[in-house]
Amino acid sequence: MSELSAKRILPILIFLGAMFFLSIAVSLLCGPTKLHWSSPEGKFILLHIRLPRTALAFLVGFALSIAGACFQALLRNPLADPHFLGISAGGALGVVIGSGFVFSSSGALTVSACSLLGSAATVLIVYQFSLKKGALSLYTLLLAGVVLNSLFVSTIVFFQSLFRSEELVTVLTWLLGNFSFATPKQLFFAFIAIIFLSGIVFQSAKKLNVLALGESTAHTLGISVERTKQSVFFLGAALTGIAVSLGGMIGFIGLVVPHMARLLVGMDYRKLLPVSAILGGVVLVLADSLSRIILSPQELPVGVVTSFFGAPFFLYLLKQRQEK
């Protein structure tokens, strides 16, 4: 990065920092109960309900955006989304099966564990399916993922129609994105895992740039293409799986936020990844705040809010691409 681009990035950093604090302030102040700062009740709500929830939303947005940026480079497809590859639907199916049939409870830990298992199983299926002579076929990966995704979604709906139980209704609320489930312990583990995985992704930023030029160009520039592809796939998948296990299937963040970041700092993954990550956190924290305000005191699944705003933005991007 030259001196010139270093200068350009400073205002963006200030902007992101401001957005970060603003979003957190908004999220802490929004909710069905009006807070009285001095009362012990108010303090409790602030510290034990709203703060963890805000942190959770931030982490999930952070993880989904990095995962989206990873998949967009890996699949060389600007329209790739972390939910493309069936990983999140797999997680959701895991939750439906697990909490509906096996554990007969839908506590936070059960939901997260089942979701992680479902996602991991899906990742392995898609991976094995796309592996041919030691090479990962990205084309197959994409198609297999999309097909599995719709298979899982219809299976979920089938179970729902079959049982119509209370448990499954709770699970379905979770599916569309909900941050009221997670416990502080989960939050802590998720924080460690997401920071660790993101760190590895940041380290691979130069490789992601080169990979985005296509496999053979990356190869002639000296990258071990297969190794890089597989590690990017597993990193993106793990981040997606963790995000889904914490907050359900929240659409459009992983798809749209990397593009917002591209508008701000350009294509270079060394700038794109950190900016996407922070921006993803900020956007999801704001979306979650909105989800609490719109129908207050009722709560909207946050996935509804992100889709509501994400879809039009996405269409705008599509239109722009067409004009190019």
Binding site: S2, R76, N77, P78, N209, A212, L213, G214, R262, G266, M267, D268
Partner: peptide, 10 residues
Amino acid sequence: DYIFPFTVEE
């Protein structure tokens, strides 16, 4: 074929 509009410098 370029999928992402990288700058020349990049």
